Amino acid sequence: MSLSSIQRIFLQSIAAGDPEGHFVDVDNIQTYYKIAIPQHHQIRLQNQQPLPYEPHKPVILCLHHFLGNQYTWKFLMQPLAEATGCHVIAYDRVAFGFTERPDQWEEGKNPYTQSASVEFAIQLLIQLGYGTKKVVLIGCSTGSAISCSIAIRYPDLVHSLILIGPSLRPDDQGPPPVARHILGSSPGRLFLKAILYRYLPLTTLYHDVRSMREWETVVKPCYRVPLTLPNFYDSVSWLIKYFIPFEILPNKQMLHQFPILYITGDDDKYLHVDKHKEIFDEMIEGAPENAILEHHVIENCGHLTQDEKPQETLDLIIDFLRRLDV
């Protein structure tokens, strides 16, 4: 049996404890995902009735941050589905969570590049049957960069963008080239293993973890689960090495056609709130008068607002989408 097959079986066995999680093959990579659907849709499915045909309804796709996983959307998915009537999808990006981590690939098909991350998200939607739907993209940190890259590359597919603590400049999306080379080497992986095993999840991404419900019993363990999974440190190293950031802001004119909600915490230690304001101002520069571009700051909150202030984050998203008639 190949290593890939052993890894798949192991991941399936570990993830089996959560009945809400599922696997699907995307570009020959076993991908872990969850879907939240409105309660009235669930009832129809239980009664073996077809779902209503709602061509105007987009699908909502959530893309988590670096070193995160789909768990980060736990408190948003079902309430968002109920409030909007949309199906809400979250998945573990390659290298994270329970998604398979390839240790070899064909030339030109490196799954750890940002370009591959964009194509992967599109293929996931197609595999799940949402290929004809417009997409509301909710991205956190580097997930926001992928969301914007999808909008730039596939504008006809995108409905709107919701960016949480977005990392949109190359310098904010990862280490500089020299550090990428070092961390992408064998010694670099040993360093990553030592640091991540000790410090993951990074408390600096929050305003105050003591105020978060179930931090020690749920949140922290959910972020630490991948530490025990096959190829975790290798895949993180490969991602750092190959995930060369796209230029988002130089393509800002292409983003102006989409409604954009930009959410930050006032105590974002990863990217200061003033820096976010500067980036947002640069993003909206030259936008037409009718463009819908909003920036909101959540008080007493760090980089991951969906973790630390889920209700405030949810309220902003729902209000934004309702004003877009979703």
Rank of each mutant, 00 (worst) to 15 (best):
I126H: 14
S211L: 15
G174E: 05
L205M: 04
Q253P: 10
H65C: 03
K134T: 11
T99D: 01
N28F: 04
I318G: 06
G108N: 11
L51I: 05
F320V: 01
F243L: 03
P102R: 03
D171L: 12
N300L: 12
R44A: 10
A287G: 05
Y270F: 11
F96I: 08
G174P: 06
Q173N: 02
N110S: 05
D156T: 13
K269V: 02
Q70R: 12
T84C: 02
A36Q: 07
E119F: 03
A291T: 05
Q46T: 08
S186W: 07
D172Q: 01
D307H: 01
D171M: 11
V178W: 12
Q49V: 07
L293S: 10
H40K: 10
C222D: 12
E278A: 12
D171T: 12
D268P: 02
A81Q: 04
L205P: 00
A116I: 02
D25F: 14
H64L: 00
S13H: 11
F320I: 00
L11H: 07
P177C: 01
M254A: 13
P58W: 04
Q70W: 09
C62V: 02
D171P: 07
Y53P: 09
L137A: 07
I6A: 15
E214Q: 13
I126V: 14
Y262G: 00
P187E: 08
L192E: 02
M283G: 05
H256R: 09
E216I: 05
N110C: 09
L249E: 06
V236K: 02
D172G: 00
L200H: 10
E20A: 14
L3Y: 14
M1T: 14
P226A: 05
A95F: 11
E312T: 05
Y154N: 08
Q46M: 14
A291P: 03
Q173A: 01
K252G: 09
Y270V: 10
P187F: 13
S237R: 09
T305L: 00
N69F: 06
T305Y: 00
I6H: 15
W238N: 08
P175I: 00
K277T: 09
L227W: 12
E247T: 10
S237H: 10
V219Q: 05
E119S: 01
D156C: 09
L293I: 08
S5E: 15
P177V: 01
S147G: 03
S147D: 00
D325P: 11
L205S: 01
V273G: 04
P19L: 12
Y91R: 06
A116L: 04
K133F: 03
G21Q: 14
I240K: 05
T228Q: 11
H22L: 13
M77F: 04
K34R: 15
V88A: 03
G21M: 15
E289C: 07
R169T: 13
R323M: 08
F98H: 13
Q257C: 15
T132W: 14
D156W: 10
L157P: 10
P175N: 04
E308Q: 00
E216V: 05
R198N: 12
A16K: 13
K275S: 08
Y270R: 10
A95T: 12
D171Q: 13
W215C: 01
K269G: 01
A95E: 07
R153P: 07
I6R: 15
P170N: 07
G165S: 08
P187R: 10
E107I: 11
C86I: 08
T142E: 02
L11D: 09
V236R: 03
T203F: 03
E285M: 11
V136K: 03
